[in-house]
Computed example of a mutant assay.
Amino acid sequence: MWGELIQEVRVAQTGVQILFGFLLTVVFTPRYAQLPDTDQAIYIVTVVLGACATGALIGPVSLHRLVSGRRVKPQAVRWASRLTLVGLVLLLATMTASLLLILRVATHDSYVPYLVASVVAWYGLCWFVLPLWTRRRYTTR
């Protein structure tokens, strides 16, 4: 299970690191100073969420390295799995906040919250609902 978990984490790690890297550069653009206070607050929340998601998704690698050879693999897999799930939830929150900020800057239409909610629902369906449904439907008792 450890190998599968690390492979899964690698995919999420790459995405969150790229997103976080782009987020870190926004504050240094001339346009940032012109953003309304609300958009700057959304940006700050987004960066903090991205930092937390990055930490949670890199955590399993550090955990593995620090407990390797200590005969605690079942416990390490459990904790790494939990960190990964927390990281995915934080990644979802980061992507939601990023999308909200980008769409607020790109357009000032009132449909932005509905569009963001639709995308979040899609992520929720793909990342959580379908896997949980599959687990419940096909797990043998």
Rank of each mutant, 00 (worst) to 15 (best):
M1T: 13
E8S: 09
E8W: 12
R10A: 13
R10Q: 13
V11T: 09
Q13W: 01
Q13D: 11
Q13Y: 02
Q13F: 02
T14V: 15
G15L: 11
Q17S: 15
Q17D: 11
L19P: 00
F20E: 04
F20I: 05
G21V: 05
G21T: 11
G21H: 05
L23T: 02
L24D: 07
T25Q: 03
F28W: 07
T29L: 12
P30N: 06
A33F: 00
A33M: 03
Q34K: 12
Q34H: 10
D37S: 09
D39N: 12
Y43W: 08
I44Y: 00
T46H: 06
V47K: 04
L49Q: 06
L49P: 04
A56H: 06
L57K: 05
L57T: 10
I58N: 14
I58R: 06
G59R: 03
V61W: 08
S62C: 14
L63C: 07
R65M: 11
R65I: 12
L66Y: 12
V67M: 13
S68R: 15
G69M: 06
R71C: 11
K73V: 13
A76M: 14
A76T: 15
W79N: 11
S81L: 06
L83R: 00
T84N: 05
T84R: 01
T84A: 03
T84C: 03
V86G: 02
V86C: 06
L88S: 03
V89R: 06
L90A: 05
L91Q: 11
L92E: 09
L92D: 10
T94Y: 06
T94E: 07
M95P: 01
T96P: 01
A97N: 06
A97G: 08
A97S: 15
A97E: 04
S98L: 14
L99Y: 14
L101R: 05
I102H: 00
L103C: 07
L103T: 05
R104N: 12
T107I: 06
T107K: 03
T107W: 07
S110M: 10
S110T: 10
S110C: 00
Y111T: 10
Y111K: 01
A117F: 07
V119T: 04
A121V: 08
W122R: 01
Y123M: 12
G124S: 12
W127L: 15
F128Q: 03
L132I: 14
W133R: 09
T134E: 07
T134W: 13
R136P: 00
R136E: 08
R137A: 15
T139I: 02
T140D: 09
T140G: 03
